[in-house]
Design a protein around this nucleic acid. Structure first.
Lengths: 198, 198
DNA sequence: GTCTATATCTGGATAGAC
DNA sequence: GTCTATCCAGATATAGAC
């Protein structure tokens, strides 16, 4: 697996560090996570970390990218169920959600390094979700009238919003709300003849 | 309007400062907004500000509370339309949305001063929205089957998520998505007999 | 009540040895 | 590639005069 040649070792090590950071942030939360603590956790000095990632922000972004990879791999065959299961699993790693939320806020500044990442993240996510929806429409398990991109956008926004709120109020049942909304979104819009909507 | 007695002046001044900060953050954005800049903008020294608000976080929270007040007042009679109009108006003050998003992220830490504010904010918001929905059910403009609290929760989460994303990608048409979702949520669920949902 | 000046502190980044 | 040591910037918070 390790690439041969001059950069093999570094890349491998980088991966290890990333996974260590991922675990640490997941467990201990994002707040009170300075470079020093992160370095400690992976058994490296502060500058050791910086040697690999240049800056704190870039390290965080790398962590986020890595998580995206892992999530994608863990999901396997995309389906509404596997997506909701993913959200449910995220419940076990609040620190990562916290990290994401902070980076999301920071990314509002176009000059912030997370800006680019977030744009990609959303583009990939929306596209992937929309593809799933299109597939469902083709095999008839989703009504043809829904616009896949609009629905994907809304669902991702809903998920983000629920996660942010859940961090503040862990009693919130995210999956219940997601399932309810999914059902409402996919319901066939046919009315009984003679009834107006309002 | 100014209260008489020893605290009248202070309270009044506090209000002025708050409105100044509100305007400043709205215009210039949240990033690159330090205490010093805020103090400058309202024609006060850094410690002048702190005299009134104790700390930066508390000032920010006061700003957020103030905005909640103004929003509530500006909305007048609550209705789906006025809510969506509010979101549309928010488009003109991205800095305030940015502030909210940052505080939302920070509030994940229960020890952070914004934690308490956010809990209240969501409780008030959900309750108010649910009350509106209940009213609509009573006068028949909303189907009786929807659970007002669940729908309010979902809608607020959706709004938050759309706003966070809009900061990153201002091309996103928030109101269009909200209107679409509103329509999907309130659609009557009756199916044509003989059709399964999936 | 408001200002000036300053203390303090946190944490990210850098230089250079090994 | 990794560490130690140091630096430095930025920002908050405080002390005390006016």
């Amino acid at each position: 697996m390790a690439k041969r040649g001059p950069y093999g070792k570094g890349i491998e090590r980088r991966q290890q560090i990333l996974d260590g950071a991922l675990r640490t942030i997941a467990e201990r939360g994002f707040h009170a996570t300075s470079l020093a603590e992160l370095a400690d956790a992976v058994g490296l000095s502060q500058s050791g970390l910086l040697h690999y990632f240049g800056s704190k922000e870039q390290l965080f972004i790398a962590v986020l990218r890595r998580r995206d990879e892992l999530d994608l791999a863990a999901m396997g065959e995309p389906s509404p169920e596997s997506l909701i299961a993913l959200i449910r699993r995220n419940t076990e790693v609040p620190g990562l959600i916290e990290l994401f939320t902070h980076m999301q806020a920071a990314a509002a500044d176009p000059r912030h390094p997370a800006h680019e990442y977030m744009r990609e993240h959303y583009e990939r996510g929306t596209e992937g979700f929309a593809r799933l929806l299109r597939g469902m429409q083709e095999n008839g398990s989703l009504p043809a009238h829904v616009d896949p991109v609009a629905m994907a956008t809304a669902f991702i926004a809903l998920t983000d919003g629920l996660q942010s709120r859940w961090l503040i109020d862990p009693a919130l049942d995210m999956t219940a709300h997601l399932e309810l909304c999914w059902e409402r979104f996919t319901a066939r819009p046919w009315m009984r003849p003679g009834h107006e909507t309002r």
